[in-house]
């Protein structure tokens, strides 16, 4: 019983991380129709910046949790304004190639500056502790990840469904050209959304650092799972990203426990099943 609980909690923690990575990815795709291959590379940058801030400069994990998203926000805004926007008129394939190239460049820069080996980020104090849940001792940090995901998801849902900005964002997901002709500065909205997506991926990277190891392959590792999340949840859907993150997180976790040999395949089997039954994803709009 307690073994199940541990794996369930592991699943929740991974689901939280997956959500933080995929929320930005799905929002950017839903609105701009750009599948951002560099998203996971930005997540990795978040983790490496965090390494420098925590392990080399300040020793404060909280500090990097605040600073890294801001740095990534700026990087995201610059990438959108000066690269993506110029390529936009040539079509989606070119946009895809741009983000693909960007992912490679970031990965190589990371190897060059930080080295091609794993780095450890240690958290101290409260987050390094444990909690007792139904008689089992569980690391506080994993609970913290899940709480962060709930907070971020909650704030995003509030903005999307309770504010004027949210109406504009959802309208742009439906039809960005129409939104533009109604007098909304859509290029600015795109830049903001792309920058926010990058900031969120940076935040996720900071969170992932102490949990998984920080190494140049970490982007690839999470990218596939994040893609599965947005396909299963439905492109552009926040609700879909939440549900799909939970499903994939738990599936990964229990897969290892119950079918160790199949655990890698389970996620893709699920994706195939969803694509066959409802090609637009669980929460996707039929088009």
């Amino acid at each position: 019983m307690s073994e199940f609980l541990v794996f369930f909690l592991h699943g929740l923690a991974y689901a939280g991380l997956l959500f933080l990575v995929s929320a930005g990815l799905t929002l950017v795709f839903g609105m701009m129709n750009v599948l951002n291959f560099a998203h996971a590379a930005m997540y990795m940058l978040g983790a490496y910046f965090s390494y420098t801030i925590v392990m080399q400069l300040t020793g404060q994990f909280w500090m990097s949790l605040m600073i890294c998203p801001v740095i990534l926000f700026v990087i995201g805004a610059v990438v959108e304004r000066f690269l993506l926007r110029r390529v936009h008129r040539y079509g989606h394939v070119q946009e895809l190639l741009l983000t693909f190239g960007l992912a490679y460049i970031i990965t190589e820069l990371v190897k060059w500056y930080w080295g091609n080996y794993p780095l450890a980020i240690n958290v101290t104090g409260f987050l390094n502790g444990t909690v007792s849940i139904f008689g089992i001792i569980y690391p506080m940090y994993r609970i913290f990840i899940f709480v962060c995901a709930i907070l971020v998801g909650g704030v995003m849902a509030l903005v999307l469904y309770k504010t004027r900005l949210g109406i504009i964002l959802r309208a742009a997901v439906n039809d960005s050209e129409m939104t533009n002709t109604l007098g909304v500065n859509v290029p600015l909205v795109f830049m903001g959304v792309f920058a926010f997506g990058a900031a969120l991926s940076g935040f996720a990277g900071v969170i992932a650092g102490p949990l998984l190891s920080t190494f140049p392959g970490m982007a690839q590792e999470i990218l596939l799972d994040a893609f599965v999340v947005i396909v299963v949840g439905g492109f552009g859907s926040l609700g879909g990203a939440i549900l799909a993150s939970l499903i994939i997180g738990e599936l990964q976790s229990f897969g290892v426990l119950l079918f160790p040999k199949l655990s890698m395949a389970l996620v893709y089997l699920l994706m195939a099943a969803v694509l066959i039954i409802k090609p637009s994803g669980l929460f996707g709009e039929e088009s």
């Binding site: 004027r164 959802r170 309208a171 439906n174 109604l182 909304v184 709009e285």
Partner: peptide
């Protein structure tokens, strides 16, 4: 399509 009639007007 996924906005309500009211939200469409607000847009």
């Amino acid at each position: 399509r996924s906005l309500t009639v009211h939200e469409n007007l607000l847009m």
